[in-house]
Design a protein around this nucleic acid. Structure first.
Lengths: 336, 336
DNA sequence: TTGTAAGCGTTATCAT
DNA sequence: ATGATAACGCTTACAA
């Protein structure tokens, strides 16, 4: 039943329609220079034979594949958690790609082996360009891909290599505003739950906290998480241990903030009365926590869109792109 | 900076190493028939030039791409929710594919346009085979892809076309056990929150409930959800409205069960004392609900692995595969 | 407007 | 063991 039938080629269609291969190619690719009746005949032959162009052959000559890879150097479990940041980016990317008629190819690369295979895949010419998000440390992947002549755009400033075009958000500015808000509302002992320090987002948000606090003569109190809810829950416990007198905490992601909220409740601290909490991201969930979360909003979906637009320009051979930094905004709800 | 340098070809490597293209090809593909020193020279040339084989050219002649598509006809938001079923399948698929040295290409197709592009992509020869999950209604996609000569395996029996190989779980058996357990523990008014009726999983689980209940002379009480937590929450409300005297509910997914639990608490019903609850899936979260959820376990990751093994056999031209049905098991925790 | 023919970068089949 | 050379299926000058 499956019967892997020989796929019909241009040649076959041409014979059936009684024209040349070139003409069939023209019709298939929507050229306007083909006479009406002949177009009709070709289309019929295509339909009857169930012809679909062989992409490998087409790519070989055009040097284009009309698809774009989005690489996430993360394990499946991580990407598909309830952290709505990845989905937001993916949605933005999908939208722009859809509009451009390009296909999105999503690739996860948790393991080192996966990392390598992904590199071979994209440098092997399977895609016209690459979007890279959630980079850890000074990952050599971006510069490797660039060196292979494949256009790349990163989400978040890449740590090692500054020459790769990227889209990022104003982490420091957003965090500063958050900490200042805490300060302005009279908080004295402001702690933070920082993100992983091998990722720009983690680093920058901690920098923003430190900078603003120092400017106010405050004393940093830091615990670290990895952007997961569980890690936020744990980090908050540690914070409570280290500094039982804290009265505010800036948490580097909403998901971690959610975990922190749980710990605070278990510890009998009222939010925001005893402890004010501010998150970062403004994912959908932030409205539904108890109490609703005050947070630094980053335009997640716009990141995906901007990334994609930049990459499409790059693949269209437009000149090198300057980094784009999107702005963040403090969203006041009830937790601070 | 980006300088889309001409990618070096086999030809270039051959010239540099002072050998023929054929020899380079042999070395690159790990043939053992090449003399040591020559191998060395070729490898050096490859390194110096940064040569990477052009996959389009290779695919054109070998008719293989060494990559497999996993298509999810769902929007990004849906796939990347906190329903851990998708990730589980993806993880299983990744494992098997990794072992086989094949690349996973994940494709989401929420919109009709996306649907069509995905079809063109896979029938265009970008991949050696296709895994299809989360099919809705009598989606023509599987048979279309089969007709194009590309091997396909579906997760869940496809609704329209029975001729496509698939892997599924014993929904009916699992649900029967769950309902029987409820009956055996003396429950009298057993309701259900069913899944979407355009998906096998939704249909079969409802069938299991109906069948078992009817056998016991019971009276079905049904509300419908779409496998999301929110829909479970709503459906439970409706159930409480329709049948305030219910004392048990079988919910067709753990995520919906989680929503239902919330509604029950809000309504002041104690679980399991007033109302017993049984879910389906046994995702990680099921241990952490309050109370921990009794549920029908399906081996999610194994589904992914089995799917992949089956597809790999198919692409290796082994004969048509009979459907595989994995068994389910009732996991007793505290909610029933 | 249509056809002819030259590649695109590999692999694979022959010879040598 | 190595090298010519013919495909693979398509696009695209260039001719007609």
């Amino acid at each position: 039943m499956t019967m892997a039938r020989q796929r019909p080629t241009l040649e076959a269609v041409a014979r059936r329609a009684g024209v040349s291969r070139a003409t069939v190619s023209r019709v298939v690719n929507g050229a306007t220079t083909v006479a009406g009746p002949i177009q009709e005949a070709v289309r019929r032959a295509v339909r009857e034979l169930g012809y679909v162009p062989n992409q490998a052959a087409r790519a070989l000559v055009t040097q284009r594949t009309d698809s774009i890879a989005l690489i996430l150097p993360e394990a499946a479990t991580r990407v598909f958690s309830d952290d709505q940041v990845f989905p937001g980016i993916i949605r933005g990317v999908s939208q722009e790609l859809e509009a451009a008629g390009k296909q999105l190819v999503l690739m996860l690369a948790g393991s080192p082996a996966g990392h390598e295979r992904v590199e071979r895949y994209v440098t092997g010419g399977h895609v016209d360009g690459v979007l890279l998000a959630s980079l850890h440390g000074a990952d050599p992947l971006p510069s490797r891909i660039v060196r292979a002549g494949v256009p790349v755009v990163c989400s978040g400033r890449p740590l090692g290599d500054i020459t790769v075009p990227y889209v990022d958000v104003d982490h420091v500015g957003g965090v500063s505003r958050a900490v200042r808000h805490l300060l302005d509302s009279g908080r004295q002992r402001i702690a933070t739950i920082a993100g992983p320090q091998d990722m720009v987002a983690g680093i920058e948000r901690l920098t923003g906290y430190r900078r603003e606090l120092r400017a106010a003569g405050g004393h940093p109190i830091v615990a670290y998480g990895d952007f997961t809810r569980e890690s936020g829950l744990l980090a908050m416990r540690q914070l409570l241990d280290d500094a039982p007198d804290l009265d505010a905490v800036f948490v580097a992601s909403d998901l971690m903030a959610h975990g922190a909220l749980r710990t605070l409740r278990q510890a009998g601290r009222r939010v925001p009365d005893d402890v004010a909490v501010i998150g970062f991201d403004d994912i959908g969930m932030a409205r539904y926590t108890d109490p609703p979360l005050t947070t630094v909003r980053q335009p997640i979906q716009d990141i995906g869109r901007e990334l994609t637009r930049m990459l499409l320009r790059l693949t269209a051979d437009e000149p090198t792109e300057a980094p784009v930094v999107l702005s963040t905004e403090l969203v006041l709800r009830d937790s601070a």
